[in-house]
Design a protein around this nucleic acid. Structure first.
Lengths: 300, 300
DNA sequence: ATATTTGTTGCGCTCAGCGCAACGTTATTT
DNA sequence: AAATAACGTTGCGCTGAGCGCAACAAATAT
């Protein structure tokens, strides 16, 4: 067991003050208490620490060793406090976010960039995966925050914000599928189409729609990677169905364009921002959550 | 103030055990106590340290910082204990000895050599000077042990051993003063003679003798350095008066020889081994004291 | 829905730890 | 040499910090 800090304080004060009585005055204690504290320390370490002498006290060799230890420890403590302080002031800290595949682009641009400007010391742990993976990561406390598409309601999750997004058709700008402003469902079902796998929220929405609308697409590519999907479309090999915000960057860049499907609220899915129910979040995470919530609302 | 080690123990045990209850079992405490200890820590550091959750506890970022601190501190403590242990077992330690000028040679050979063989880790602080200087060093706790010639009795000093030594005449072997086996006082008073200054015990003895025996020497050299005195004699510039053991090494080496003075107990002086009255000595010093005591007895 | 396990809180109680005062020892002063 | 002062230590009560016991709210597992 470590020595009692009160004992150590008495010890170091007695040495710096020179006498036990002076130390007692300085600490607002009685000389007897200081003496007993030091004695207790000596008993615990089984060594004499001070020489009680004619004119006050002076450290033995063991006492000087202990002084060195105390000094180092005090420095460590100071460092710790400063680290904790930095954490509390959000000068440092790590927030871990689990993202559904499609959210990476928008998150980087609309959240990460401005937030990291405001809080340069904060670091991030991003975990990108399917909706199920995101949900599990949050439930198992592997991530503070989750943002995914079509997460199933769960009592263990606390929903911070939700917005609904219809699926739109994505095609290469100026490519062979870039015709007309909208596309109807019959046309769509004839086009070569890439999908996210099931397990991904968007994939589930499409699967649901195939059941309800009797819509059956020509599935040419099924993947877990949005990047693969985009590459598929950019090379004009076919089209895909995604919420619009997923390809916002590419639309700005002029490489992709979207066609709304003629059915109202076609493939409407829900983007959900959530944390684990009952979890107390670090300050940095709380702030980030506000950013993300605003960003999500801006997408609608 | 440093955190209470009991609190820290509860904290680290809770984290390593995974739950507060398991930690309580492990520590032989109640869960309530462990919980309160951790809460107290959090209050002191003004930070949440653990996330109390569904299945036990897990550290927050601040908690991990504290864990690191605890780990480092524990290492420091272990190092300290090992150092103290080494000190207690005399594997390490420093003994400080104040020596009268003449004792350096014998001390190095008869004490330091065998003692440092027995205890290789022990280090030494030697302070060589006049008798008064040696006495002051011991009284003011600048040296643990003092060994000097003709120290005045002092209630603040505790005498460990004493032996008496007559002065003998020292001359260069084969030199112009190397005649006969003994020398009488008349001859001696005609020879060019080097002395230790007053303040040195030998010097005081000679001064006393000048008064009592009416002996008056031809003082050619007065110095505070035994080495200077020896050089003076070796170069055959004159003789000097010293206790025999002071030049033991040189006699072995065959560079100096001694002549007893024809008066019985000529210039009898006392070599005294002493410490400060009431001072509690470290183990290493106590052992050395035994060595020195024996060595002194062997000189007689 | 019930039962189990988690951490937390309220309530007494006990003993570690404090102040007070007296003591032995040592250095300084008269 | 005696008196004084200052040092650290010890004995003795007392008080409050800290513990165990038991009941509790929340969350998970069955």
């Amino acid at each position: 067991m470590q020595p009692d800090p009160k004992h150590i304080l008495s010890f170091k004060t007695a040495l710096s003050a020179g006498t036990i009585r002076a130390a007692a005055d300085q600490l607002g204690l009685e000389p007897s208490t200081v003496s007993r504290n030091i004695t207790a320390l000596e008993k615990q370490l089984a060594t004499a620490l001070i020489e009680r002498g004619r004119k006050g006290v002076m450290p033995t060799e063991a006492g000087e060793l202990l002084m060195g230890y105390v000094h180092r420890q005090s420095g460590e403590m100071e460092a710790l406090r400063s680290q904790l302080d930095a954490l509390a002031n959000m000068e440092r800290g790590t927030v871990s976010v689990a993202l559904g595949e499609g959210f990476l682009g928008d998150f980087s641009q609309s959240v990460l960039r401005p937030f990291s400007q405001d809080h340069p010391g904060v670091t991030y742990a991003l975990d990108v995966g399917a909706t199920d993976h995101v949900r599990d990561a949050v439930i198992e406390d592997k991530a503070h925050v989750g943002l995914a598409f079509n997460v199933a309601p769960d009592p263990r999750l606390k929903i911070i914000a939700q917005t609904e997004h219809p699926l739109v058709m994505i095609c290469a700008r100026g490519g062979r599928f870039d015709t007309g402003k909208t596309v109807d469902i019959q046309d769509l079902s004839r086009l070569p189409c890439g999908f996210l796998s099931k397990g991904y929220g968007v994939g589930a929405v499409i699967a649901a729609m195939e059941a309800s609308h009797g819509f059956r697409a020509r599935g040419v590519l099924e993947t877990g990677s949005i990047a693969a999907l985009k590459a598929f479309v950019k090379n004009d090999l076919g089209v895909t169905l995604l919420p619009e915000f997923v390809v916002a960057e590419d639309m700005q860049a002029g490489t992709l364009c979207t066609k709304h499907v003629s059915i109202r609220d076609f493939g409407l899915g829900t983007a959900t921002l959530f944390v684990r129910q009952g979890r107390r979040l670090p300050l940095a995470t709380q702030k980030l959550l506000v950013f993300m919530s605003r960003s999500l609302a801006a997408l609608a």
